[in-house]
Each structure stands twice: as C-alpha cells, then as structure tokens.
C-alpha cells in the first residue's frame, strides 16, 4: 500500500463571522460592541488519497468543499487537525510544496488580464524556476492537449469564459504539479467545453500520474473522472467510497423497468409509475422492496423484459444533501 499523497486527520476550520441586526441603531451599537458568531465550515474531517487517484469532492454550496481545498493548498490555516500533502504541511507554505501542487478555481482568473496568456506563461516559468527547454516542451504539450494554439496570443480579457478556463489550466500546470486541487473547473462552461476539460484532466492524470481532488456541481464531471467520491455536508464527511456504492448507501428507491406481453395493465399497486409508454413501464419502488416487487411482477404478468436500475446520480446526491445537519 503506497503512502497517501493527501492525508487529512480531524481537520477543522472555524470562521469568526461578524453579525448584527439590520438598521441604523444596530450599526451604531456595533461601533462599540461587535458581535461575532463561530461558523464551523469544516469539522473534524479525515481521509487519505493515494498517488494517481482522482477523487470527487461533493457537497452543496457552503458544505466546506472549497474551505477544505484551500487548507490543503496552503491558503487557509486550519483551526485544528492535521493536513499533509506530498509529505508537506500545507499551512507552512513551503516553496518546495507550492512548486509541486496547483489549485485551479473555476471562478477566478490567475493570468494577467491585459496581456496574451503566453506572457503570463513566461512569468509562471520564472516564478516556478523552470528550465526553458522543459518549460517549452510542457507548454507545447498542454497547448496541444487543450487545443488552444490560436488563443494564447490574444489578451486574456478578450477570451470567452471557456477559452479563458482552458488557458488558465495551461498556466496552472506548466510546472507539472503532482497534486491538482480543482475547484469547479467547468463552472459556467457549455457542455462541449466541459467535456473537453474532463477529457484533458483524465489525460493529464494518465500521462503524469498526478493526484486530483475535484469539486464540481456537474455530476457528468464526477461520473466521467472519479471512481471515488467524498461527500461533505455541513462541514462533515457523510460518505467516502466508490461512486457506485453511493447509491447503495443513500438511494431510497430503485427503478424497475418492465416490458409486458399485454401492455396497458395497471401497475400502480407495485409502486410509483414514473413512465408508461404502451407496453414499456417504469416503476419507482422503495429500495428494500425491490426484489419482492420484481418477483411479484414476474409471477403475476407476462414479462418480456425486466431491468432494475439505480436512480440517477443527481437524485442520489440530492437525497444526501437533503439530510439535516447533525445536532
């Protein structure tokens, strides 16, 4: 068993947030006495990620995903607990560590706005102390993989959102990082561009053996890239395991699809009919009753075909997120 690239143990981040009532009176009062509230953004989470793994980090807005990623990237000091990435403690912000990782934030621009991306790449070469030959080889490889050859000569401000994200990714990977923290890299992009970025992440991981921790609200990203997911909600980890096992643990129902010899028979008694197209019917049934209902259908009808399907991953995630915070 290789050492984990990312090791997190009981990691906690508590923000102190000022708050007051609305209105002039409250504003005047706050001048003399500030009130603050502790927000437990991340609470005692633990997990390990091995070399070369791509792990999906899922959770609704405010769940603690980005806070966790920022602690792992060395942007935030943890309140307590332990984090180690590539053997480094991220909060120490050692240059040796920063040279071995990258973080891409889908909603943030890290390239120089007014000049072509090529100039920003050159600046990154100097910042990361890259040998020119290696830098040029890596740059050309990334430019080819993301097909941005004609974009890198335009000022960044003149690029579309999708184009900008692609050149952002090139800039973030020039130093060939071993660990990638990707915070919603496909946010706001059209379907084609999302697919392109996904393919690229997969290819980069395959070529360079990099470890990837990815957050995304698009389940297509997660399904395409991540065998393993970590689900975080209200700052706590609810699930850590194979994506396929997520439905087993959290899906409340399964869908039985049947094709009947004599279509049109009423099947409401077996469960919630979600599709009825002639002889083809889909019935949603509680997970625990799936076998019994399937057996009944086979016994009581002329069934030509029967399938049992897990619910769509979006529905599973929705049911996970619907869970109330632990008291």
């Amino acid at each position: 068993m290789p050492d984990p690239v990312v090791h997190v143990a009981e990691l906690t981040k508590i923000y102190k947030v000022p708050e007051r009532e609305a209105g002039l009176r409250a504003a005047a009062k706050a001048l003399f006495k500030r009130q603050t509230r502790d927000v437990r953004a991340v609470e005692a989470i633990s997990f390990d990620i091995g070399p070369g793994e791509i792990v999906g980090f899922l959770g609704p807005n405010g769940a603690g995903k980005t806070t966790t990623l920022k602690m792992l990237a060395g942007l935030l000091y943890p309140t307590s607990g332990e984090a180690r990435v590539l053997g480094h403690i991220p909060s120490k912000r050692e240059r040796e560590y920063l040279r071995r990782m990258t973080m891409v934030m889908g909603n943030r621009n890290q390239l120089q706005w007014d000049i072509p991306a090529l100039d920003s790449f050159e600046l990154n070469r100097a910042i990361y102390r890259l040998q020119r030959d290696d830098y040029l080889a890596m740059r050309d490889e990334l430019v080819e993989l993301l097909d941005v050859g004609d974009l890198v000569r335009k000022p960044v401000r003149n690029l579309s959102l999708g184009e900008r994200m692609k050149v952002e990714i090139v800039g973030a990977l020039l130093h060939r990082p071993q660990v990638l923290f990707l915070d919603e890299p496909t946010i706001g992009l059209d379907v084609t561009m999302q697919k392109r970025i996904r393919t690229f992440i997969d290819e980069y991981n395959r070529r360079h053996g990099a470890t990837v921790l990815l957050t995304s609200h698009y389940m297509a990203d997660v399904e395409a890239l991540c065998k393993r997911v970590i689900v975080i909600h209200h700052g706590r980890i609810l699930f850590d395991g194979a994506l396929a096992a997520l439905a087993d643990e959290f899906a409340a129902y399964k869908t039985i699809g049947v094709v009947l010899e004599n279509g049109g028979a009423p099947l409401d008694a077996y469960g919630e009919v979600v599709l009825n197209e002639g002889d083809r019917v889909s019935i949603r049934v509680p997970k625990a009753e799936t076998s019994r209902v399937a057996a009944r259908l086979l016994a009581e009808h002329e069934v030509l075909d029967l399938t049992i399907e897990e619910p769509p991953i979006e529905d599973v995630i929705e049911s996970v997120f619907a869970q109330p915070a632990a008291q």
């Binding site: 290789p2 050492d3 690239v5 070399p51 590539l86 053997g87 040279r99 071995r100 120089q112 000049i115 100039d119 920003s120 050159e122 600046l123 070469r125 100097a126 910042i127 990361y128 102390r129 890259l130 040998q131 290696d134 830098y135 890596m138 130093h175 060939r176 071993q178 360079h208 053996g209 990099a210 470890t211």
Partner: peptide, 28 residues
C-alpha cells in the same frame, strides 16, 4: 514519502531570482 511522478528540473536560486525580476518587469 516518495511519489513516482516526473518533475521538471529547476534553475539555480539567485539566477532564478534575477530571471524572475526581469520577467516580471517585462510583464509589467
């Protein structure tokens, strides 16, 4: 800990700092 991932070699420290200043000034 050892992770088998290829890394790009780095230039010397002081030369790198000089290179960084010149490149950043050019960018500015």
């Amino acid at each position: 800990m050892s992770v088998d991932v290829a890394r790009l070699p780095e230039a010397g420290r002081w030369r790198s700092l000089y290179d960084f200043y010149v490149t950043t000034m050019r960018t500015a």
